[in-house]
């Protein structure tokens, strides 16, 4: 009860979702990384091959080796390098999940300003995640 004096219900909902989604994210990136470097699953590009080219600019490296980027990995989920990359994509999506969860909470509280502000924020993040600002893949 005391907690609600310092943080309202919307904020507490955000905090709870953030805790679980970010904890899962940390576990996921470590598991994904180990799957890749220990080569528990086959990868299109081995870590050694990536290391041969990691001194190149991002655009040049992608011309030489087929490492995942953007959303181009979605059809190749069984690969070790893809699983490791997908874990980073997940971590980069955590804020969107949390913001999406509080929109109904703001609506329920009839808080028009923050409903709109949060909707706009989620829209911006969805656009950038879809690759709208960077050409996409």
């Amino acid at each position: 009860m005391k907690q609600e004096l310092h943080a309202n219900r919307v904020q507490l909902s955000y905090a709870t979702v953030l805790f679980w989604t970010s904890t899962l994210g940390i576990i996921f990136i470590i598991a994904g990384y180990l799957t890749y470097v220990l080569q528990l699953l086959p990868s299109a590009v081995s870590p050694a091959e990536v290391a041969l080219h990691w001194h190149l600019r991002a655009a040049e490296l992608h011309k030489v080796v087929a490492v995942p980027s953007g959303w181009d990995w979605l059809t190749q989920l069984g690969r070790g390098d893809v699983i490791s990359y997908a874990s980073i994509v997940y971590l980069s999506s955590v804020t969107m999940f949390c913001l999406a969860v509080i929109i109904p909470a703001f609506v329920k509280e009839k808080d028009f300003i923050y409903t709109v502000l949060t909707l706009l924020q989620v829209t911006v993040l969805l656009f950038v995640a879809a690759g709208a600002f960077s050409g996409g893949h």
């Binding site: 890749y36 990536v50 990691w54 992608h62 490492v67 980027s69 953007g70 980073i88 950038v128």
Partner: peptide, 12 residues
């Protein structure tokens, strides 16, 4: 997300 789309993120 811009870095992810531009291929500037390597899990390694």
């Amino acid at each position: 997300w811009v870095y992810l789309h531009k291929g500037a993120v390597l899990p390694l």
